[in-house]
Write a protein that binds this DNA or RNA. Structure first.
Lengths: 349, 349
DNA sequence: TTGTACGCGTTATCAT
DNA sequence: ATGATAACGCGTACAA
């Protein structure tokens, strides 16, 4: 049914080798011959078999995505990651790569042996999302020198790097906005301690507050986990404080929305009684009322950056420096956030 | 670097053929031999090359997803589709299939030749999302007899079927809820005319209204396209009517949220002055204030159903009935919706 | 410039 | 029960 390269060759009156060369734009083939082969190929609707191609070329024009969606069952969706996936797909499409979704749990044999998965499919690169960066399986993957790019995940290695929001800058934007409005008692609701965005935004908050000459009492740091409920709970704790904050920076929009809800439940009005700023600018941020003031990430740009980075690492000749060169891969790409002022921030009462 | 089956065979003292049989649980192999092969395979960390495997077996344990995300650039994200993708991925992972994201535009040669794409990768099945079901490329794909499953897309064929919400039932739920509250002047904001959900919910609305003994004047049908802006615009038109509706059923949550916003902009209070019901129960539905009353879809169940359907079609021996049997594939799976009552519905003033 | 022959890693057929 | 051998479809030394 499917027409193979030998058929094309035969109908063109050349050998399969020549046909292959013609089709793959090799230099040493007569123009007339190439034209003839290309013509019959088009005519026959020839499409090279990717399996065979990958087998002999040892590459597959495919990158894999490792994304542990286990949290969905217990906590619900995470919009930003979904947006990111779409962006990744779109950016990848333009480069000609396909994207294969691998499930850490899909290999019954070795539950999370990313190295094997990648090798089995001759993946040219791997993108990682929402997995614990400290997993041995991730270390092993990086050590295997297969091109890797982390999305909001600090993977570094000879052929690995990552993209993420510039959390320091973004957080500073939020704090400056709040301070600029006149707030001095500013608290934060943090993301999970294990995730880079959580950690960096937590640290960025302290730094930005210090830069603004503001104090951060320990009780003004309420721990959350990026999901709605944790924002609700954290805000309740903050509001119960003897000296509650007049503004809150939440490390994620979902938590910020939870915080707003908690404030309203407590009989407060946002932003009159308390201001709230989020991070990410997920779709609901513009839909809730009042609209959430937040630090927006350009997820399409982030997807593009991730692909650029990955392509760059893939293209990089695997030159091992002296002594096997434990060289670092390209520098991470930090994408600046922009402040999106909506309706949850105002000067303190 | 990677260890192949011949290495395993050699170290086990058997031929590659026997090693293959042992590893693939073939019947005719001595227990002792199998044990030995399995042991050395594990010891060596042997992982079969999927390319080679797919090449010779003519199948790849991979299903493709065709999802045209072109709309993202112009209209923005569509949460429900993203949710659906996640569900698909999760369900697929449990069956051992991998999921390959194909971009209609990723093949420079033939822009949307799904048949070729599927053939090139030996895809065992293809899932379709957000593509125009009337595209010639889709017809060709179905005609190629490659197992297909549409997600909210009415693809039918010998080896093709689809899953979708039971739009008739879901819409009836919404209308009955509204009628039960005492509303009689109920309008609808429709989805795109080209998409199945839009069409079916439009028709379901008329049917449900008729069943409730209510009239639907033509001006009570405002056309939208599932995106927020269209909901806003449609609601403005409805409210400008000489005799505006007291309740509105929007075919999608985003449009419903837009409708609520338009009502508020017009100085109306929801649900006191006008009630609004949506469809899908996307994440923002529970986040907006007041919470959106809507017809909830279980997206995880839908993903599972899609995978079950696809697996069923794949497993089905391609028995062609008499005369080449243009038999229909399995019946579509319609998933019932459930009414999620939140804060945008109340009895008419 | 072109053709021959081999190998990529695996499974399937047919002997034994 | 096991082993040799031949595919699967393609790219690429090497020879011509």
């Amino acid at each position: 049914m499917a027409v193979d390269i030998r058929e094309v060759a035969r109908r063109s009156g050349v050998s399969p080798a020549t046909a292959s060369r013609a089709l793959n734009a090799h230099p040493n083939v007569a123009d007339a011959t190439r034209a003839r082969v290309l013509a019959t190929a088009r005519e026959l609707g020839y499409q090279p078999n990717q399996q065979a191609r990958a087998l002999v070329r040892q590459r597959s024009d495919t990158v894999g995505l490792i994304w542990d969606t286990g949290y969905v069952r217990t906590h619900g969706r995470q919009s930003f990651l979904q947006d990111l996936l779409v962006a990744l797909k779109m950016a990848l499409a333009e480069t000609g790569y396909h994207l294969m979704l691998l499930s850490p749990s899909s290999t019954a044999a070795s539950p999370s042996d990313f190295v094997s998965i990648a090798a089995q499919h001759s993946l040219e690169g791997v993108a990682l999302m929402a997995v614990n960066a400290h997993l041995p399986a991730v270390d092993a993957l990086i050590a295997s020198r297969r091109p890797c790019v982390g999305l909001d995940l600090p993977v570094r290695g000879a052929r690995a790097s990552y993209v993420s929001a510039d959390n320091q800058q973004g957080t500073a934007l939020a704090v400056e906005h709040l301070a600029g409005l006149g707030h001095r008692r500013i608290a934060t609701i943090t993301g999970g301690a294990g995730m880079m965005p959580g950690v960096e935004r937590r640290e960025g908050f302290s730094a930005a507050m210090a830069a603004a000459g503001l104090d951060v009492p320990p009780e003004y740091v309420a721990e959350g986990d990026f999901f709605l409920e944790s924002g609700l709970a954290a805000m309740r704790r903050l509001l119960a404080l003897p000296s509650p904050p007049t503004a809150v920076f939440a490390a994620g929009d979902l938590m910020a929305i939870g915080a707003v809800r908690a404030a309203e439940e407590a009989g407060l009005s946002v932003p009159r009684d308390v201001s709230v700023v989020g991070f990410d600018d997920i779709e609901p941020a513009s839909l809730v009322h009042p609209g959430l003031t937040t630090v927006g990430q350009d997820y399409l740009a982030m997807g593009r950056a991730a692909v650029e980075l990955l392509v760059q690492i893939i293209a990089d000749p695997r030159v091992t420096g002296p002594r096997g060169g434990a060289r670092r891969g390209p520098a991470p790409r930090l994408l600046p956030g922009r402040l999106v002022v909506r309706g949850t921030t105002a000067p303190p009462a």
